[in-house]
Amino acid sequence: MSERARLGVRKTYKLFIGGAFPRSESGRSYVVNDAKGRFLANASRASRKDVRDAVAAARKASGGWAARTPYNRGQILYRVAEMLEGRRAQFADELRAAGAGKNAAASEVDEAIDRWVWYAGWADKLGAVAGSANPVSGPFFNFSTPEPTGVVGIVAPDSPLLGLVSVVAPAIVSGNAAVVVASEPAPLPAVTLAEVLATSDLPGGVVNLLTGRRGELAPWLASHMDVDAIDLAGASPDAVRELEEAAAGNLKRVLRPSRQDWSAEPGTARMTAFLETKTVWHPVGV
């Protein structure tokens, strides 16, 4: 006689705001199916109010995060990689459920981990690469340093793990806080990534993750007056104009969507897109 199979304990997929995992204040959810159309889970369907709560949490966290030493931010990003490494099987399963083949799922998880490691190392090098001492003609010491822009809104691409990591890590490594709208069809790895972030010493509010309808959430993020920049990586082509117009309301820095191979070497463009250059002058004299 065989043992009766144990009934599994399913996870409730929720939002990630200010370091906590609330449901949408709207009480709404939407069905997420696997690649074969079978029910996987109900994901939270975030509302405009959730966007605003997430922006408030990001703003609150941004000052402290930017003030951490670059070494400390680098260690925390590396810690994210460590936590992710420990959950490789779980992420591979979720990617397979979203439609990836066995090998592809495993290699996407490995690349996502390595991407965190790559960006972790940038934290204490970006200032040297993007900053400068400027040879002005006069008795002045003049230097330029990169600083985080502030709160970055991210419309994440549909690559549910590697694409997501590839847009979140470059935004936060320099000290920005982020509000992320996850892939609409494949949001579950994003929520699981939030669990990784929550256990990596990343201060609450530095990354806030919303699931739901992109078309509903992205315009609120693009028009929010306390968001300083927006990454439109995952915006649909016919929504870009409207989102950019909304972003002009407070002159957000806009990173337009472009053809991306998420497994390619990322380069520095996604980091520098969310940096401001500050130039300081001081006289030289006795």
Binding site: V136, N142, H282
Partner: peptide, 13 residues
């Protein structure tokens, strides 16, 4: 940011 000076400009800055 101009510290102990103001309105200084230079092509290298």
């Amino acid at each position: 940011v101009w510290a102990n000076t103001f309105n200084k400009f230079d092509p290298a800055s």
